[in-house]
Design a protein around this nucleic acid. Structure first.
Length: 825
RNA sequence: GCCGAAGUGGCGGAAUGGUAGACGCGCUGGUCUCAAAAACCAGUAGGGGCAACCCUGUGUCGGUUCGAGUCCGACCUUCGGUACCA
């Protein structure tokens, strides 16, 4: 206690109270969630944590306010499901196995054990009977089952593809897991590899995923990020004639969103991986081209990105014909064209695309303006002109706006058979194979005779063998385990071998909300009735870092499962709220190396779970995060202490002390205003202002007590109602005080207090009097004062007269209940 | 570069276009104490004035309005997202 700055002398022992009620609630199964009630359901879910071993204060920040909101919903009369589980597969477990020789299963389960204890200490309404742990066969069996459903639906496929490889994790990554050309987990620069991998066809769902109409309340920025990630663009796929080259194709197809610039094409660029590069290279350029292509292929993503400023490329020596004007244009290969987007070929329009402009400058290619800005003087541009303008140098299209040109050219090109309108997407299919041990085995068998054979449903789960060599080799550790690999083909019974890759852990989290509804379901991933009754999740909360991974995958997953008939709805999460990030006292991101990490166990030990809960909710709006403060939490602890003292008092001593009618009325009014404020703010996740309102009310009660100016009846009402409002926020102390006041057990089974607008209303208001918008006076008037009277009162104010004397009063503006503004000149 | 969010006291932050700074922290003074801590009371945006009061003030510069922290335009800064996507 003396070694840190948290020092408040509490009049109660939070550790005793926390333990007392946590045990009681658990013994009485107070938080057991029933599937069968008359109440309307409310499914409020927090993203489940990775069992890293220790509950970080960041976990508390994610979970304590979420629990408060779920409790609030419970008090509103809902049957609330607010479950918890563990995202228990993943690399850290395997890395612990490598560095410390502990089996991933053992490591994970002992971490879970510790985190359960820590999670219990926050006093949340988790129903532990519904806990989901996805590294257990009871869970991952259904990953496999669902994978087979997707496979049968044609949504899971195996393909050779250039994939992103993390040399440190020794596994492939999904595109979504690449951050600035580095692995999102270990920050190692990624490379590319050509590998056979399993993919899920998320690209079949682009349009559905762009349809956000089934979502009730999601932050706009998450929708924007998803929209950008999917990256839909409409354009035209147009062909260029290469008949004269006598290659195996007669044309090169390029995708463009700017078909209006087709007359400005002065070159074509193929991605180095484009199949025609080699064929279109003339003999005396072969050396240079193959050197360039090989270099581009081997270059890591980062190197290619680093080449950002300076364009590179090589002329193949061949020419294509632009069909719209018959012009002969040179064909290049350059690494700024990506093989994975569009057709892997780009028409170079230097006048109207900045990348093409850079390329043309570097290689001395002509720049031909075809979209003229309104004040164009005919000179060659010094930068690409991207904006709108009028078509020029474009034959019959001259004079059109480029918007008209796009439509006209697209139609004419379609009519000529030179191309067609089409839509491109940036998003690629979801790569789910991982060359690691601690994940769900992909339930597939390779048979020399039958090819790829799914593991029969009745043979599930394909169990992870307990014995494996975890040392990363670039191949799944399972591949070295002959007992696992060797299997008879389910079809023809001849010797075959198993798929040895495991699934991306985002597969687990794509459907865990379904499992929570019926976590013990043994012969199906979930009970359809339970899913029907509970889904969709009404409120989901968690960090924004999952915007284009977990949240997009899960939306896709549910839509795909709907198409397989497994579920009947198409959005998993109706409302989403992203909490912010809790920072260290130094306002920096918490990290061990900075030494600014707060251990929740310590603070809970000092001041109790309620103080930590309240502080985290009080520091500011939940979505903004904010810095931890050891001194700041003292303020909250002191407040809870004052609340304790206040609510422990014997209200009956107030009788016979001569209560004041005005004070009684004022107190009742404030009580009802506080209920209203608290209710409205908690509903909107504005915990900070809800707590501020409760503080104002408790301050008022303190003052009232010292004046002995209200009667015991009103005092008791105030205390009782106050405790009910405090209950979702500080569940332990409110329960203890509830009991001490003789209200029985449990406070948490009571409805949230209701307010009476009549009682909350003011009968006088302070009217602000302004002169030319500056506040000059304040007058107390009845709320129902009429405009004329208000204006007269304002004009009669001596303070106002000082400003109106000798000036002309032009007009007065009256805002009922607010102000009178007198305009003088 | 592009997209998005945010800039308010010493600090965290409040404020349907209508009293800027609620609530809390910190600080200052006081009560209690031998003393300290805790607790309680009072004060606390800056500047001026004995005072009543006055002036200035929500990143910068403009605009709309009787009135702007809030709306509009330009810019600066910070933080997220994204990164040659044709």
């Amino acid at each position: 206690m003396s070694t840190n700055s948290r020092q408040v002398e509490l009049r109660y022992d939070p550790s005793v109270i926390d333990a007392k009620w946590q045990q009681r609630w658990e013994k009485d199964a107070l938080h057991k969630v029933s599937d069968a009630t008359d109440k309307p359901k409310w499914y409020e879910m927090t993203m489940y944590p990775y069992p890293s071993g220790d509950l970080h204060i960041g976990h508390w920040y994610a979970m304590a306010p979420a629990d408060c909101h779920a409790r609030f919903k419970r008090m509103q009369g809902y049957n609330v499901l607010h479950p918890i589980g563990f995202d228990a597969f993943g690399l850290p477990a395997e890395n612990a196995a490598i560095s410390r020789g502990i089996h991933p299963h053992e490591w994970t389960m002992s971490n879970i054990e510790n985190m359960r204890r820590q999670l219990r200490s926050l006093g949340a309404i988790y129903d532990w009977d519904r806990e989901v742990i996805c590294c257990l066969p009871e869970y991952y069996k259904w990953n496999q089952w669902l994978f087979l459903k997707l496979f049968n639906q044609g949504l899971a496929y195996r393909a050779q593809a250039p994939v992103v490889w993390c040399p440190s994790c020794q596994t492939v990554l999904a595109n979504e897991q690449v951050v600035n050309g580095a692995c999102e987990r270990c920050d190692t620069q990624i490379t590319r590899k050509d590998l056979e991998q399993w993919f899920l066809k998320i690209t079949d769902y682009c349009e559905q995923l762009l349809d956000f109409s089934g979502l009730l309340e999601w932050p706009d920025r998450i929708l924007t990020m998803q929209r950008n990630w999917i990256g839909r663009s409409e354009g035209v796929e147009i062909s260029f004639d290469i008949e004269a080259c006598h290659a195996s194709f007669q044309e090169i197809r390029a995708f463009t969103t700017r078909i209006d610039t087709i007359f400005g094409v002065t070159f074509l660029v193929l991605a180095p991986e484009h199949p025609l590069v080699s064929e279109l290279t003339i003999p005396d350029r072969r050396d240079e081209v193959s050197k360039y292509v090989n270099k581009a292929r081997q270059a890591s993503e980062v190197d290619r990105l680093a080449a950002d400023k300076d364009k590179t490329g090589v002329f193949l020596g061949s020419y294509a014909v632009n069909r719209v004007n018959g012009e002969k244009i040179p064909i290049y290969t350059a690494d700024y064209v990506l093989t994975t987007y569009g057709t892997g070929a780009v028409m170079g329009v230097p006048a109207h695309d900045s990348r093409d402009f850079d390329f043309a400058k570097k290689f001395g290619l002509p720049i031909k303006t075809v979209i003229a800005p309104i004040d164009w003087d005919g000179s060659e541009p010094t930068a690409a002109y991207i904006a709108d303008g009028f078509m020029t140098n474009s034959l019959a299209y001259d004079g059109m706006t480029n918007a008209e040109g796009i439509q006209a050219l697209a139609s004419d090109i379609e009519a000529q058979g030179w191309g067609h309108r089409t839509t491109s997407y940036r998003i690629r299919d979801w790569l789910i194979s991982r060359q690691r041990y601690w994940g769900t085995p992909i339930p597939m068998i390779y048979c020399d005779k039958c090819g790829i054979v799914p593991v029969p449903e009745e043979d599930l789960p394909v169990l992870l063998p307990p014995d494996a060599d975890f040392t990363p080799s670039g191949e799944s550790p399972l591949a070295a385990n002959s007992n696992f690999v060797n299997v008879d083909c389910p079809n023809c019974l001849s010797p075959a071998h198993r798929e040895t890759d495991t699934m991306d852990t985002f597969f687990d989290s794509s459907w865990y909300m379904l499992r929570y509804t019926s976590p013990n379901s043994a012969d199906a991933p979930f009970d359809p009735t339970a899913v029907h009754n509970w889904m969709s999740v009404d409120q989901y909360t968690g960090g924004a870092e999952h915007a284009v991974m977990h949240l997009l995958y899960s939306r896709f997953f549910i839509k795909a499962l709907k198409d397989t008939g497994v579920v009947q709805f198409d959005e998993p999460f109706l409302r989403l709220f992203n909490q912010g990030v809790i920072l260290g006292e130094d306002h920096e991101k918490m990290s061990k190396s900075r030494g600014n990490v707060v251990n929740p166990d310590d603070v809970v030990g000092d001041l109790g779970a309620d103080a930590v809960r309240c502080f985290l909710m009080f520091i500011g709006p939940w979505d903004q995060g904010g810095p931890w403060s050891d001194v700041g939490i003292n303020g909250i602890a002191r407040w809870l202490n004052r609340v304790w003292v206040l609510c422990e008092r014997d209200g009956s001593v107030l009788d016979g002390t001569g209560s004041d009618d005005e004070k009684c009325k004022e107190t009742v009014k404030l009580l009802h205003q506080t209920i209203r404020k608290c209710y409205v703010e908690l509903d909107k996740f504005k915990f900070n202002t809800a707590i501020a309102a409760l503080m104002e009310f408790s301050n008022h009660l303190s003052k009232i007590w010292s004046e002995s100016s209200i009667n015991s009846q009103i005092w008791q009402d105030c205390v009782k109602t106050f405790l009910l409002m405090l209950a979702p926020i500080a569940p332990h102390i409110s329960e203890e005080l509830w009991e001490k006041n003789g209200y029985g057990y449990s406070i948490h089974e009571n409805p949230f207090p209701e307010w009476d607008d009549e009682l909350a209303s003011e009968n006088t208001v302070t009217l602000v009097v302004q002169v030319n918008g500056k506040v000059r006076d304040r007058i107390d008037v009845p709320v129902d004062i009429d405009q004329d009277t208000a204006e007269q009162l304002a004009l009669n104010s001596t303070k106002v007269r000082a400003y109106t004397e000798g000036n002309t009063v032009n007009k007065a503006i009256y805002i009922p209940g607010r102000l009178v503004n007198i305009v003088v000149s």
